[in-house]
């Protein structure tokens, strides 16, 4: 009951912020439109929809970090969280209440991206469902990053870290917008040590139906998701203890 009430509040707060809708849905759709238009006017296969759609889906998840981080940081800085910490809500209620509403949002965001991808020829088949499912560990990872950032940073800092830094890191080091082999060397090694390129590779493999490639990449993403989420829970519980 308590967790449900808190999760419902998280859901409403995020969906009623027009900036969240603009960044969460609008920006990925603009990217799809722009990149597909570029692809239509160049002779090489740079942003083919089979690669672009899973890429935009993974990149779009970085905005979940911004949503969750901003909400938690604003709750902290406005004393709202002080009020909630004095209530019978437990740390489990808080973590679930901040996290669970974002998972269906992640799935909705992915589904909308896929629906628009159909316009540019993305095949309508069961692989779409697989793609949505494969993105769940990456969703947990990005929500965890937001929870961690919101627990330790102010809302302005979250805006800078999750809104600018994270989106850039996940863009540059994911291989979504260019082939990492073009740079290679240390840059590629760093990228493959981080989870973003693995989230993209898993999504790309799901879209192509290459099932045997998905799992090794998901293990990377899942391990990072677990580690980041554990750190986020620790940081949040530390805040709760005053």
């Amino acid at each position: 009951m308590r967790m449900r009430a808190f999760a419902l509040r998280t859901w409403k707060e995020i969906l009623r912020d027009p900036l969240n809708i603009a960044f969460g849905l609008g920006f990925p759709l603009v990217l799809l439109l722009l990149m597909s238009t570029i692809q239509a006017n160049i002779p090489i296969a740079l942003f083919e929809i089979g690669r672009l759609a899973p890429g935009v889906m993974v990149f779009g998840l970085s905005f979940l970090s911004l949503f969750s981080g901003m909400l938690i940081a604003k709750d902290r800085t406005s004393s709202f969280l002080t009020r909630l910490f004095a209530s019978p809500l437990t740390s489990r209620d808080f973590i679930a209440g901040y996290t669970l509403p974002l998972l269906p949002m992640a799935v909705m965001q992915g589904a909308v991206c896929l629906a628009f991808s159909l316009i540019w020829g993305f095949p309508l088949n069961a692989k779409m469902l697989l793609l949505l499912a494969v993105n769940i560990p990456a969703s947990v990872l990005f929500i965890g990053i937001g929870l961690l950032a919101g627990s330790v940073l102010t809302d302005k800092q979250v805006g800078a870290v999750c809104g600018a830094l994270l989106t850039n890191i996940s863009a540059w080091l994911s291989g979504i917008w260019f082939d990492l082999n073009l740079i290679g060397g240390a840059f590629k090694k760093i990228a493959y040590a981080l989870p973003f390129v693995h989230a993209f590779e898993a999504a790309k493999a799901a879209a192509a139906g290459n099932l045997d490639i998905i799992l090794p990449h998901l293990v990377w993403v899942g391990a990072y998701a677990l580690a980041v989420f554990a750190m986020a829970v620790f940081a949040f519980q530390k805040k709760m203890r005053g």
Binding site: R9, E13, D17, S78, S79, F80, T82, R83, A86, S87
Partner: peptide, 15 residues
């Protein structure tokens, strides 16, 4: 058994 009204106004702004 208690409740708190913190120093700053603590309401959920979009609710």
């Amino acid at each position: 058994k208690i409740n708190v009204s913190p120093q700053e106004t603590a309401v959920a702004p979009n609710l």
